[in-house]
């Protein structure tokens, strides 16, 4: 089965964080724990200034370093092409937190194990969308087969922008419709 992942339309995102909250609610996360986060970056030198929003989560990487490093096999590739985490195998060694370049795995203090986005597997199995996708009022987020998403949303999609680490490391299954500031690697941006 092909690689599955998220599509994010930066050009339409208004930074409302509905996806972040829907995700937090769906996964019943505690204070300080996030499986999806919306960030706001700005930068440039007057008069040439600009910014963008970025909604990120696990990128279900094709060459996931979390999977390669996990000593127990808790982090694994599921048959549907997503990267899943087996709660029964995880021993909370936190090695995946050092390995994921996107700081995705979260240590759940109350459970003593790791947690991360599972693409709302239960909802998808029931034929629905992940919670974040349906929560977005601007319809910025989609989830599906990467190749099909590319066909549907155009050829100008990227899996790496200035604030993200190099896509070479893990080959993230991520498609971003990015604005010029996000694509300018010389542009000094900072999170606000």
């Amino acid at each position: 089965m092909g690689q599955k992942g998220f599509y994010f339309n930066m050009l339409e995102c208004k930074g409302c964080k509905a996806c972040q909250i829907a995700c937090k609610d769906k996964n019943d996360l505690k204070v300080g724990e996030l499986y999806r986060k919306v960030m706001n970056f700005e930068g440039g030198i007057y008069p040439n200034v600009g910014g963008f929003y970025l909604s990120t989560s696990c990128n279900h990487c094709a060459e996931a370093k979390c999977v390669a490093g996990c000593p127990t096999g808790a982090m694994h590739y599921a048959e549907d092409g997503t990267v899943q985490h087996n709660k029964d195998l995880c021993i909370g060694c936190k090695y995946c937190m050092w390995n994921c370049p996107y700081s995705v795995p979260q240590y759940l203090e109350d459970k003593n194990i790791i947690g991360k986005c599972d693409t709302c597997k239960d909802l998808r199995d029931a034929g629905e969308n992940p919670a974040c996708v349906d929560a977005c009022p601007m319809r910025c987020l989609k989830f599906g087969d990467i190749d099909e998403l590319k066909k549907e949303y155009g050829t100008d999609l990227v899996n790496e922008i200035s604030v993200l680490p190099s896509a070479e490391a893990t080959k993230p299954s991520l498609l971003i419709k990015a604005n010029v500031y996000a694509l300018d690697f010389n542009y000094k941006v900072k999170e606000v």
Partner: peptide, 13 residues
């Protein structure tokens, strides 16, 4: 470790 008593599972991979 979060779960020291399951440490043996770290030998799996």
């Amino acid at each position: 470790l979060g779960k020291p008593f399951s440490a043996i599972k770290a030998l799996y991979q």
